[in-house]
Computed example of a mutant assay.
Amino acid sequence: MDRSGRVFDELLVLHVQNGDRRALERLASRWHPRLLRSARRFTGDDELAREAVQETWLGIVAGLKKLGDPAKFPAWAFTILRRRCADRIRAHAVHRPRSDELTEANAPVISPRGEDQAAIAEAFGRLPDDQRIAATLYFVERLKLDEIAAATGVPLGTVKSRIFTARKTLKTLLEGED
């Protein structure tokens, strides 16, 4: 996200903290698609992603007044999202089919947005969870490394390592050398 978008989000956060409902609606309209897109990548499931994002918004609304620095909103929001996604995955793990039980009827559906998009989505899906989350926040959401470290709760060096490894793995997978 460009600098002006970040400043606008900070302004919206300040207005929300002062009780402006319209600012909350505007913040939600700007951030809901980003959170949903990331949740889909984190969980690999549309329903789990929607549930996680809904719970994320409940957490954001409940805690936004306590956020001391509006510039930290992106990392803070993605931290909540990551936790809610993990909660949803754990809660539904018992009901999910094992990989050897997948059939065409319950296989993940990738909307037809082109062969490249499908290949990228599949490659992201093959990354280990920690790398997929870091790569999604970096490549898709354009968060800074320190924001990713804050959102994932790991040291900056670990974030760098995960992104480096994910980039290498994605390149290999997309070049067909798997």
Rank of each mutant, 00 (worst) to 15 (best):
M1N: 10
S4V: 11
S4L: 10
S4H: 06
G5D: 13
G5E: 14
V7T: 12
V7N: 03
L11N: 12
L11A: 14
L11W: 08
L12H: 00
V16H: 00
Q17N: 03
R22C: 01
R22H: 11
A23Y: 05
A23R: 03
L24W: 05
L24G: 00
E25Y: 05
R26V: 14
A28M: 12
A28G: 10
S29P: 01
S29V: 06
S29K: 11
S29I: 02
H32V: 02
H32E: 13
L35V: 01
L36K: 07
R37I: 05
F42I: 03
D45V: 05
E47L: 11
A49H: 04
A49L: 06
R50E: 15
R50V: 14
R50H: 09
A52E: 02
V53Q: 06
T56N: 01
T56K: 00
L58Y: 07
G59S: 05
A62M: 09
G63H: 03
L64W: 02
L64R: 03
K65S: 15
K66R: 14
D69F: 00
D69P: 03
P70H: 05
P70N: 07
F73T: 03
I80A: 10
I80V: 14
I80C: 04
R83E: 08
R83A: 08
R84M: 09
C85R: 01
I89W: 02
A91N: 13
H92S: 13
A93L: 10
A93S: 15
R96Q: 15
P97N: 01
P97I: 01
L102M: 07
L102Q: 04
T103E: 05
A105T: 13
N106Y: 03
A107P: 04
P108E: 10
V109C: 04
I110Q: 07
P112D: 15
R113G: 11
R113A: 07
G114S: 05
G114Q: 03
G114T: 07
E115Q: 09
I120W: 06
I120Y: 05
A121L: 13
E122L: 14
E122D: 07
G125M: 02
L127S: 04
L127Y: 05
P128C: 08
P128M: 09
Q131F: 06
Q131G: 04
R132M: 11
I133H: 13
A134D: 02
A134W: 00
A134I: 01
L137S: 01
Y138P: 00
K144Q: 12
K144L: 07
D146F: 14
A151T: 08
V154E: 09
P155H: 13
P155D: 15
G157I: 09
T158A: 12
T158F: 01
T158V: 14
R162D: 09
I163H: 04
F164M: 11
R167Y: 10
K168N: 15
K171V: 10
K171C: 06
E175Y: 07
E177R: 11
D178W: 11
D178A: 13
D178Y: 10
D178C: 08
